[in-house]
C-alpha cells in the first residue's frame, strides 16, 4: 500500500517532513493570528460601534520592525528548505545504479545485468541511483512516499537517488504532463529484503510468460506489460495509434517514405511495425509517436502478439 505517513519509506522522508512541519506550522500560526486580528478589528471598529475613524498614516518604527522581522524569517525558512534538500544532491559513492527509461506512457527499469522490468524493484537499506532517460518528451519520475521527484528530459543526462528503509510497495507516478495517457503512466516500486532482492535479481528470464494459458492470452499480457494498449485498442476505436481489430491478414494502406502503398498485414509487417515503427505509417496517423521496441520484446514475444492479433479475427 502506498502511504505518505511512513517516516522510513526513504531516508529523505524525515528531513523533508520536518521542513513541511516548520513551514506549514509557521504558516498556520501567521494565518490564524492575522485572521483573528482582522476579524476582531472588523467587529470592534464597525461603523455602528465606532462612528469616527482615527486617522493613522503609519508608524515608521513598526513598519521597519515588521519588514525586518519578515526578512529574518524568510531567510531562516530558506535555510530550512535548503538543509532539507541538500542530501538529495549528493549521491553516495556506493549507490547501486539502475537506468530508468520513460516513454509515452510507460516506465522501464534497466538493471546492470541487463534485466528489464516495468516496476522498480530495489533492495532495502541500499542507496539507489537512477539514471534518467526520456525517449520522447519530458516525463517526471515521482515517488511520493520517498519525497523524490526529478524530471526526465530527452537529450539531457540526469540522475536522482534515494534509499528506502522499509520493505513494501509504493506508487510511482509520471508528474510532468506528457500527453493523452499521462495519468495512466505510473508504476510500482517494490522494496525487497536483501536476500529476496538477490534472488529476484539473478533471475534474468526476460518476461515470465505463464505457459498454462493460451498463446493469445500470453500475447495480450506481453502487450499490457509493454504499454502497447495505451495507444492501440482491440475494439476498433482509434486512439493515438490504429486499432488491433481486423488488422492481421488484411490489406493496410500505409505511407512508406512519403509514398502511399497497400501492404498485407502479415507476420513480417507486424514484426516490422514493432521494431521499426517509423518505416510504414498507417494512413491517418502521425509519424514519430511510437518508438522502436527493439531489445524490449523478443522474437518469441512478437510471436505471441501475432497470436493475439489472429485471435481477434475470430
Amino acid at each position: 500500500m502506498y502511504s505518505v505517513d511512513k517516516l522510513d519509506a526513504s531516508s529523505f522522508v524525515e528531513g523533508v517532513d520536518r521542513v513541511f512541519i516548520i513551514i506549514l506550522g509557521f504558516s498556520f500560526l501567521f494565518l490564524i493570528v492575522l485572521t483573528f486580528l482582522m476579524v476582531w478589528f472588523i467587529f470592534k471598529y464597525r461603523k455602528s460601534k465606532h462612528p469616527k475613524a482615527v486617522q493613522i498614516e503609519g508608524n515608521t518604527k513598526l513598519e521597519i520592525a515588521w519588514t525586518g522581522g519578515a526578512f529574518i524569517l524568510v531567510i531562516a525558512l530558506f535555510f530550512v528548505g535548503w538543509a532539507g534538500y541538500k542530501p538529495m544532491l549528493n549521491v553516495p559513492d556506493d549507490a547501486m545504479k539502475i537506468t530508468a527509461i520513460a516513454r509515452m506512457w510507460q516506465f522501464n527499469f534497466l538493471y546492470e545485468n541487463g534485466k528489464m522490468t516495468d516496476s522498480l524493484v530495489i533492495p532495502v537499506d541500499q542507496a539507489v541511483e537512477l539514471d534518467l532517460v526520456a525517449l520522447d518528451v519530458i516525463h517526471s519520475l515521482y515517488i511520493p512516499a520517498f519525497r523524490v521527484k526529478e524530471d526526465m528530459v530527452p537529450g539531457i543526462e540526469k540522475n536522482m537517488w534515494f534509499k528506502s528503509l522499509r520493505e513494501g510497495g509504493y506508487d510511482l507516478f509520471c508528474a510532468e504532463y506528457c500527453g493523452l495517457e499521462h495519468s495512466f503512466m505510473n508504476a510500482r516500486v517494490r522494496v525487497l529484503s536483501d536476500s529476496a532482492y538477490q534472488a529476484w535479481y539473478v533471475d534474468t528470464t526476460k518476461v515470465e510468460i505463464p505457459t498454462d494459458i493460451p498463446a493469445w492470452q500470453a500475447g495480450l499480457r506481453v502487450m499490457q506489460k509493454n504499454g502497447c494498449v495505451a495507444c492501440h485498442t482491440s475494439d476498433g476505436n482509434k486512439l493515438v495509434g490504429p486499432t488491433y481489430l481486423g488488422v492481421y491478414g488484411h490489406m493496410v494502406e500505409v505511407e512508406t517514405g512519403g509514398r502511399t502503398r497497400q501492404v498485407m498485414a502479415d507476420s513480417m509487417y507486424i514484426r516490422n511495425s514493432i521494431l521499426d515503427p517509423g518505416s510504414d505509417i498507417v494512413k491517418g496517423y502521425n509519424k514519430g509517436l511510437m518508438l522502436s521496441y527493439e531489445g524490449l520484446v523478443s522474437d518469441e514475444e512478437i510471436g505471441l502478439i501475432i497470436e493475439y492479433l489472429k485471435h481477434l479475427n475470430n
Binding site: V16, F30, L31, L34, G84, R147, K149
Partner: peptide, 24 residues
C-alpha cells in the same frame, strides 16, 4: 484571507526540500 493562504503556501513551493515533493 485567501491571499495569505496563497502566499504562505508559496513558501512551501519556494523551499527546495518541500517543492521537490509537491511540484507538479
Amino acid at each position: 484571507f485567501v491571499f495569505m493562504i496563497g502566499g504562505l503556501t508559496g513558501l512551501v513551493l519556494g523551499a527546495l526540500a518541500t517543492d521537490v515533493h509537491v511540484h507538479d
